[in-house]
Design a protein around this nucleic acid. Structure first.
Lengths: 344, 344
DNA sequence: GCCGGTTACGTCAACGTTGACGTAGGAGGA
DNA sequence: TCCTCCTACGTCAACGTTGACGTAACCGGC
């Protein structure tokens, strides 16, 4: 069954020898090109089958004129994050449809790691990359872009020009969330956000400010907590907020894991029915909690589809001006965002 | 900034010309091999920098004797499933550590799609593959294995010999779950499982049977529902079970999405505090529900690490006998599995 | 019978890189 | 002084494949 035998992999030459034709003819048959008679085709196919021949795409793409590797790179922050993995899946589906495979990596929001991964992708001559840009400078991204690699940024726009990008309605949806809380009578609405270096965090914060302003509320600086990377930091920050003399009556948590962290604290203190909560980013089972968690839901498959569409268009030579596609998010009301301020 | 100019990518030849050395010397410098004087090294580095040279790994691995592509393939069922994506991340971390990139694909539990993806990986000459075998026959997997591609199966063992594999304690943990329910006094314990073609489903079902037997309970065939692929089918099945003349007082849901489906129905009927529930596979926020969901938790990072460890050992030439590693799962008690049968 | 066109092949070089091997020059030892 | 060994390069071919181009055989039409 399993032979550890170190035999060479069969090549076109081997197939050609067995079928008594030239390698060029084998190439024609394998690639389904015309110029081979029916019986020769059958002979070559049979030879390939008996030898267990597999075409070598790396050799092929090295030689071919189009130089395609039929592979794209995907560089997200953390592939185990549900947002990232849903996005990956959407891109992958579209890629498969084009006969393209996906090289996937997690940058952990570290731009030096992102740079390394980008170089690795570049060394493998991927046809294009879909990137969730790490915070901080984007020199490596720009450099790669400038070398001519088709590139689409998702979730966060580039700090340099000339590159397609797909984001969601971060600011507008955040404003909407805050306005909804204000409409219920909340005056002390806290903002809990991820790293300030992230564009999405900034946008959502701006939306928060706009919401407050539009509702005629004044900003209480001490209700703003940022740089909460991960649920643990969010928990700590939420506790601090609730321990304030005049604690917030509503929380706007501007990221996935931050929402989870805040939820944990509210539940631990039995406040989940008293303090309103709206989170940015949906997550599984948000509807099954008590109360259900009101969230701003991004259209993740939509974003992924759009990003894939753009990257493949660019790969196919589309040279139209760069696009910044904005895929709308929607407020999903489930209860936690519909709690009015308590009367005490 | 962005020049669409169709200029050729610089190669070693270009660098060599600029640095006034031979391509072989450039190769030595790029690969950090000895045999180049310090000032030549500097000259070559400078030339590479000015030209924006990037080594071409495909050409390199074509020519090199070890033939490594520094790439492995990962073929899971659905990369957007939290179990799969956590596994992917664990494998990816270990791969990165070895300077290896990951080509990821979703087989959707369709063995003909899996075959196609496997051929794609093979054409790219990946150094090895980590596969969650699709249900049904595994001819394509075996064929690939027999060609000498290092392979590790995760979650489900191979139906053929000679291949490493990493699974969890499906049967033992399922038995333990059922015994816990029986110990609380439950006599009508339902089994809800995924596709019967899946080895994990079969194992968990066997564990369920063993649990019943060990507790001295007799199997009620009508309490067994299988082939529930996805939360929707699970919902329907759960409703049917609850509508029986003598409905079950406890549910053992043998997969992720099945658990979610059952939970939805229990909540919709207000039974979440009356009908006991233990699920196989943990999921995010299971602890924050009311009641918390008792689950059998697999050690996903552990499984991923082990799988990665095995595949890289094989790639590095380890020829010891094939291993079937079993990573223990643990019962996590959160409430839903600790509900005693109601007295009516 | 001859000519132009088409079909079905084959030959050859090249894609970018590296292994095998060659060589010039200097260092070091007897 | 001569020989050996080492260092720092260079030359060449080959990895598996395909683009460009060559060619022999055949077909149809006049």
């Amino acid at each position: 069954m399993d032979h550890a035998g170190e035999r060479r992999e069969p090549t076109m030459r081997d197939v050609a020898a067995l079928a008594k034709v030239s390698t060029k003819t084998v190439s024609r048959v394998i690639n389904g090109l015309p110029g081979a008679g029916p019986e020769v085709v059958e002979r070559v196919r049979a030879a390939a089958r008996t030898l267990g021949y597999r075409p070598n795409l790396t050799a092929s793409s090295l030689r071919r004129s189009d130089r395609r590797s039929a592979t794209i790179g995907v560089l997200f922050e953390d592939l185990s994050n549900p947002f990232d993995s849903a996005l990956l899946r959407a891109v992958e589906d579209r890629a498969r449809h084009n006969g393209v495979l996906v090289l996937a990596g997690s940058s952990e929001d570290d731009h030096s790691l992102q740079r390394e991964l980008l170089l690795s992708l570049s060394a493998r001559r991927v046809d294009g990359v879909v990137v969730m840009a790490a915070g901080g400078h984007q020199d490596a991204l720009q450099q790669e872009r400038d070398r001519g690699t088709p590139m689409v940024l998702v979730d966060r726009p580039p700090t340099f020009g000339g590159t397609d990008c797909v984001t969601t309605t971060n600011r507008d949806s955040s404003r909407e969330a805050v306005l909804q809380l204000a409409a219920l009578g909340h005056r002390d609405i806290a903002f809990l956000g991820d790293r300030r270096t992230l564009w999405t965090s900034q946008e959502r914060y701006t939306g928060y400010l706009e919401g407050l302003a539009q509702a005629g509320l004044t900003l209480r600086e001490e209700l703003v907590r940022t740089d909460l990377h991960g649920a643990d930091l969010a928990e700590t920050a939420t506790k601090e907020l609730l321990d304030l003399g005049t604690p917030p009556t509503a929380l706007f948590t501007a990221q996935n894991l931050v929402t989870v962290g805040s939820m944990r604290v509210l539940r631990a203190r039995g406040l989940q029915h008293r303090v309103a909560l709206i989170g940015f980013d949906d997550f599984p089972l948000a509807d099954m909690l008590e109360p259900g968690i009101t969230v701003v839901r991004q259209d993740v498959p939509g974003i992924g589809r759009k990003a894939a569409e753009l990257i493949f268009a660019r790969i196919d030579g589309d040279t139209s001006p760069p696009v910044h596609a904005v895929v709308p998010a929607a407020l999903v009301r489930r209860g936690s965002g519909e709690i009015a301020p308590s009367a005490d």
